[in-house]
Design a binder for these strands. Structure first.
Lengths: 249, 249
DNA sequence: TACGCCTCTCGAACGCTGTTCGTAAAGGCG
DNA sequence: CGCCTTTACGAACAGCGTTCGAGAGGCGTA
C-alpha cells in the first residue's frame, strides 16, 4: 500500500503501476513513504486519543501509516520507546506559571489539574508514566517548573523533592485508575456511575450492622461520587494540607 | 501434583494404557485430575509470587497444574476473574487492629505497611487492584477495618470515606510503580539503585543553572533514595498530616 | 552516465498471549 | 448395565511484539 502517488493514505492503494512521467518526476522527491519518528509518534498519539491504550499496537500504528509493523523498528527501538516518546511529546502542552509565594498552593493545584486533563485526553499515557521518570526534553522542563512551585512554598528541600514525586504519582495513578474503570465497565456516563453507586450503597446497607458498623455509617459518603473531579480534588487537597504542615511560611 | 497415581505431572505421561486393576481402583476416587477453582487460584498466586505478573498466563497456570489452558475455563470465567479471586484470597493475610482513638494514625500507618508488604510479595496484584473496588468476601472485611480506624480519628464522614480511597490508591500505586520499575530495569539491587541515582544526580548538576535553578537546588534530595521504604513512609505521612488537619480530635 | 554502496522498507515468520469449540471420557443415576 | 450430565482438554483463532532477510531507492564516486 501507499505507493508514491498517495503516501500514507491507508485506504487508497490504486493497483495500477505508476506511469513513467510520474515516475521520473518522483525521482527527486522522497519516493518512499516518508516514514519518520515524528510521524510514528503522532500516529501513536492519535490512536491513544481516539481508541485508548489497548488499541495501541505496532501493527495498528503501522496500518494507520499505510505500512507494515516491521517498518517502524527503523525509527523506534520498540513499543516501550515509542510510548516514552509519545509521553514526552504530550508534555509540550503542560504549562506552569511563574512561582508566586503568596499562592503557590493554588498554583500547584492548577498545574496538577492541567496535567490530569492532558493525561485524561490520552488514555494509556498515564499507564506509560508509571514507573518512569519522564525526563525527556519536554518533561524535564515540566519537572523544573513543578519544583519551582514547591520551592516557593518554602518547604524543606527533602520535603519539596519527595512531595513532587508523591503528588505526581497521585495524579498519574488517579487517571490510570479511571482509565481502567473505563476499560472494565465501558465508558460509563455520569448517570451509569450514579446508578452503580446507588446499587453498591444498597448492598452495603443490607450488611449485618454488628459486623459492618463502620461501612454502614459511611455508606452514603463512600458512594457519593462527588462529580468527575471531586475525589481528585479531595486527594490533592489532602496532600497539600500535609505539605502546608511542613511549610515554614 | 503428587497425587496417588501421579496425575497432574506435566512431564510424566506414560504412553502405556492404564492397567485394568488400576482402572477399577480409579473408579471410586476422583479419577480425573482434581481441578478446582481453589487449586487454580493458588497456582496463580504461586506464579505471581515467584515469577511476577508477566509470567502469569492461563497456559502457565494450566501447565503448573499439569493440564491445558482450556480446562481452567470450567472453573474461572476468564483471566480477569482469576486475578480478582487471587486478590481476595491474599487479603486473608491483611490484619487490622481494634481501633484506638489515641493512636489511630499509627494504626493506619501499620495497616498500610502490612498491606504494602503483602502486595509487594505478589507482584501483579497491585496492578490487578487498580480500578477495582476489591469487595470479595475477604476484602470487605479489610475495608470495614480500615474505615473503623479512620472513624476513630473523628473525621467528618466524607473525609473518612474519601480518604480511605485516596490512601488505598496511594499504597497500591506505590507498589505498582515499584513493580514496573522492576520489570523495566530488572530486579535492581539497592546498590544499582544508588548507582543510577548518582548518575542522574550528575546529569542534573550538569544542566545550565539559569534554566534549571530549582532542579539544581533539589538534586541531592531528589535522588536520595531514602531506602526501600523511605519515600513510601513520606507519602503516607503527608496524607496523614492532611487528615490530621481535618480531625476534630 | 554507470556502477556499487548503503540505508530504509516491509512480507513472512516466530513464539507468545487469552479465549472458544468440539470431542471424548468419566461419574452419578435409573 | 446403559444413559446422561458434567468435566477435561487438544486444536485452533485472532491477536500481540519482535526479528530476519530480501529487495528497492537515493547518493557518491569513477
Amino acid at each position: 500500500m501507499a505507493e508514491p502517488a498517495a503516501p500514507n493514505q491507508p485506504e487508497s492503494a490504486p493497483p495500477a503501476p505508476v506511469p513513467p512521467w510520474e515516475r521520473t518526476r518522483k525521482a527527486k522527491a522522497p519516493a518512499r513513504t516518508p516514514l519518520s519518528q515524528e510521524a510514528i509518534v503522532e500516529a501513536a498519539l492519535r490512536i491513544l486519543e481516539t481508541d485508548g491504550y489497548d488499541a495501541l499496537s505496532m501493527r495498528r500504528v503501522a496500518a494507520d501509516l499505510g505500512t507494515g509493523a516491521a517498518s517502524l523498528y527503523a525509527h523506534v527501538a520498540n513499543k516501550d520507546e515509542l510510548v516514552k516518546l509519545a509521553l514526552d511529546r504530550v508534555f509540550v502542552d503542560v504549562s506552569f506559571p511563574e512561582p508566586d509565594p503568596e499562592r503557590w498552593m493554588e498554583q500547584v493545584r492548577e498545574m496538577m489539574r492541567g496535567t490530569r486533563k492532558i493525561l485524561q485526553s490520552h488514555p494509556g499515557l498515564a499507564r506509560a508514566m508509571l514507573g518512569r521518570v519522564p525526563m525527556g526534553p519536554n518533561g524535564i522542563h515540566i519537572i523544573e517548573g513543578f519544583m519551582g512551585l514547591l520551592r516557593a512554598g518554602d518547604l524543606p528541600d527533602r520535603v519539596a523533592a519527595w512531595a513532587g514525586d508523591v503528588i505526581a504519582l497521585y495524579v498519574v495513578a488517579n487517571v490510570f485508575e479511571e482509565d481502567i474503570r473505563f476499560s472494565i465497565h465501558g465508558e460509563a456516563s455520569q448517570e451509569d456511575v450514579e446508578a452503580w453507586a446507588g446499587e453498591m450503597k444498597g448492598y452495603i446497607k443490607s450488611l449485618p450492622p454488628e459486623q459492618f458498623p463502620n461501612m454502614l455509617a459511611l455508606a452514603d459518603p463512600m458512594f457519593e461520587t462527588g462529580g468527575p473531579d471531586g475525589r481528585f480534588e479531595f486527594g490533592l487537597d489532602l496532600m497539600l494540607r500535609g505539605l502546608a504542615s511542613h511549610s515554614r511560611r
